[in-house]
Design a protein around this nucleic acid. Structure first.
Lengths: 241, 241
DNA sequence: TAGATTGTTAATCGATTAACAATC
DNA sequence: TAGATTGTTAATCGATTAACAATC
């Protein structure tokens, strides 16, 4: 409750908190009850001062010479992130990614995100259950959101359907959208959107790898496989089965 | 070829390039042949100056009064990212997320990432094919990486297996790792790692939503559903099937 | 031409890192 | 106590935004 307004907390800090949290839980499992930033810094590769600043947003204070109490800082991070209470969500688009998320128990156990149901327009999917969660017709979604006061909507539809589905979610009262499609969603100012953009992530890997490989070839380095694989190569892959 | 060394290009810029690329392709499909930053700015919500700076890294120059040639800038972005050539990858961990990625044709069509095969230790999965790509025993992975000069490894294993699998990949010659597990991987300095961390992404949504909801309650705002749903609620969900 | 739009240089903003006093 | 570690203030670094001359 005494924590700072979240808007003033740097986004990079928020993104790092789950990484600290995981490490603290790992250390707790190993029986450690106190941990110093020095130690965390070695494991995670972050600057110790940055770690202190990051952890400070939770309101938890460490002890000079000792470090942070593992149990206390775990509670603090979870409370800051809202992961100490279960929160309900709906998911739209029961394709392979959507179903993977519905079956992903860690979201529930660690992050407190409980996906109540998936929604789809595909008759073949409707009626199935994934991880005990039903897949229902999309037409039923707004009513469920309203009746259960659900705040979080997860979008794993084909990109073409994303905006339409989001409009449905928003008008039914959804406040936060976790968007797994590449569509740039338009929502009212008060609705939060967090994008998981695989293309953006892959771009980083790809651009840096391209630069590395170009460097190697231009400096006459080792052999680089520029050409696509041949049919013969593919036959070899199958052979290995 | 004339492009700047990628290390000097800001990471946020690289992450935005695929977003521009998608928009340019959309505009091309609509028959547009030139686009201005002003227009892009309206659609994507970025500052026009930022868009100009971002696009400049590709080496493509726009025309004053006109804007960018759609076809030219598409080529430029793709070339900068290395998406104009197919690149081969292997995937370790054929769980639901791994299989979703193997079946995700857009990675191949848009980003030029061709996943040749998936690897797993589960006998039940080995021998299956996803999207015409075989799932093979993990023990065969290093040999395939070596023989086909594969540079990219995708890690979708359980977190416990991640480091071990990455070690296998690295010693077989993998140069870049796309990590979908929450494990902080340790690799030699020359190996690139890009993490897709669902927990970090959800943390942003979650922390902001928590802050919003706390605000609402403390200012005596509208009803907020704090309590977990009841069994009766769940019965209602099922009823809707 | 006039005006829209570009690329670039300078100013601002925000996050990271360094320096250091406080403290158990 | 002495030394390790904290929290905070100041300095640095990097990204975004503003200002403006160049140009089709």
């Amino acid at each position: 409750m005494g924590s700072k307004p979240v808007m003033s907390v740097p986004l990079p800090t928020i993104r790092r908190l789950p990484i600290y949290l995981r490490e603290f839980k790992l250390l707790r499992a190993k029986g450690r009850s106190v941990v110093s930033c020095t130690h965390l810094s070695e494991v995670l590769g972050y600057d110790p001062t940055q770690i202190r600043k990051d952890l400070a947003v939770t309101g938890i204070v460490g002890r000079p010479k000792i470090g942070y109490l593992v149990e206390e800082i775990i509670e603090g991070i979870q409370s800051f992130l809202g992961w100490d209470n279960k929160v309900d969500a709906v998911l739209a688009g029961a394709g392979s990614l959507g179903c993977a998320l519905m079956g992903y128990e860690r979201l529930n156990e660690r992050q407190g995100l409980r996906i109540l149901a998936g929604f789809d327009v595909d008759k073949a999917k409707i009626g199935q259950t994934i991880n005990e969660k039903p897949i229902m017709p999309l037409s039923k979604m707004p009513d469920l959101i309203r009746r259960m006061h659900i705040h979080i909507g997860i979008v794993t539809t084909p990109v073409i359907a994303a905006q339409e589905v989001v409009d449905l979610m928003v008008s039914a009262g959804i406040l936060a959208i976790w968007n797994f499609t590449p569509a740039p969603l338009s929502v009212p100012a008060e609705v939060l959107v967090e994008n998981v953009d695989l293309a953006s992530s892959f771009a980083v890997l790809s651009a840096r790898l391209t630069a590395v490989l170009n460097d190697k070839t231009s400096t006459g380095g080792s052999h680089v496989n520029i050409n696509p694989i041949t049919n013969a190569d593919f036959a070899q892959v199958r052979e290995n089965l």
